[in-house]
Amino acid sequence: MSFVTGLLLIDAPASALNNLGSIPGARTDNTVGVKMIKARDGAYPYVSAQAFRYWLRTTLEDAQIGWQKAPIYREEKVAYTDANPILFWDDDLFGYMRAPSGKKSAQEKRAADTSRAGETPTSDTITRVSPFRVSTLVSIAPVSVTEDFGVMARHEGDPVPHEHQFYRTTLKGLFSLDLHAAGTFSYRQKTGFRNLDDGRIEMARQRGLELVTADKSYRLPLAERVQRVKTLFEGLAHLEGGAKQTLHYTDVAPALTIMAVTRGGNHIFGHVVGATGRGQPEFKLDALAEALTVFADDLLSAVYIGWTRGYLDDERGRFEQALQDGGLLAPFRGQIQIAHPRVAFQAMAAALAAPGHEGWLD
């Protein structure tokens, strides 16, 4: 099976992109803290995978790029999407879990809810493991988190104090997309693999989806599968989101990304970017050269590197020098394409749709 395997960096010069709420025992009752991993060597701010996936979902929905989002339904303490990957692209690529309550009261409430007029009937528990996977985005080095003190003073009487934390760092995250799973829906009686209940199986038949008997699954036409995957990468190119944007206005679109289509789901780029002793981002040329050598048989595409000019220019100069004759990366010069991150994501999307690459989605 083939995967799009990638790494991304988000430049957070003064940011609080994912917060944990009030901090007990702080100087003010409404002090807002940032999420961080506390280790022996210091504090590593992070953005949860859930938050990143939320940014990407909302970007895809708002970017006017044709994304077909699933409706969301609420029942007291639970909420879920329509769980129909045949119709809705986020149910396909981001996965779902749907376990309808059999209680009479719950059934009556669902029947009376007019917002469910177009809901896909669900007769059994169905789940889908997300073909798109993303790691927690973690600071590349420990940092000293800043405590910012402010007041609300636009009123008569004493000012109202408030505080919040923020940080300066580079966040690193990994992502992976299972190309075989995209647009392919299993009906196996196994947790995580029963994507379709009887009603959805019938819909797949009526719509003429390909039956893949060996996998006990139905598959969308290739053109539709490619379109969904292409649009996902267009969303990554336009990524927006993050907390405290009114105060810190951080551009969360990746400043640097590395990706390729690989055979197998092991991440080959996980260690090619690290930190110097001063906590600054460092492109590890020897680690990239080793990965391209060791995993040469698993690389199915070019290696697409998106790098914003103005970000780590000295590192970029060192990288480009390594591509020249005699450089450490010179043997791989024909494999590596470097451009702006948005162009790199678009190039990856175009490669997935190019003639001759149909096997990547098999």
Results as ranks from 00 to 15, higher is better:
Gln107Ala: 08
Asp90Ser: 01
Gln68Trp: 00
Glu119Arg: 15
Pro85Met: 05
Glu108Gly: 01
Lys77Val: 10
Ser135Gln: 03
Thr58Arg: 13
Pro85His: 06
Met97Val: 15
Val143Thr: 04
Val138Cys: 04
Leu87Gln: 08
Tyr96Trp: 08
Glu76Ile: 11
Asp92Phe: 03
Thr122Asn: 12
Glu61Gln: 14
Ser115Leu: 12
Met152Arg: 12
Gly95Asn: 06
Ala79Ser: 15
Ser115Ile: 08
Phe132Tyr: 15
Lys103Pro: 01
Lys104Val: 11
Trp67Ile: 12
Phe94Met: 12
Gly95Trp: 02
Ser115Glu: 14
Thr127Gln: 13
Gln107Val: 05
Trp67Pro: 12
Ala83Lys: 11
Ala70Val: 04
Arg74Ala: 12
Arg110Val: 01
Ala153Phe: 06
Val151Gly: 01
Leu137Gln: 06
Ile140Leu: 15
Ala79Leu: 04
Asp92His: 02
Pro121Ser: 08
Val134Gly: 06
Ala153Arg: 13
Thr125Arg: 14
Lys104Thr: 13
Val134Met: 14
Ile72Gly: 07
Met152Lys: 05
Ser105Tyr: 02
Arg98Leu: 15
Tyr96Cys: 03
Gln64Ala: 15
Leu137Met: 13
Gly118Thr: 04
Asp82Pro: 08
Arg128Ser: 00
Glu61Cys: 13
Lys69Phe: 07
Gly66Trp: 06
Ala99Pro: 02
Thr136Arg: 04
Ser139Leu: 10
Met152Pro: 00
Tyr73Ile: 09
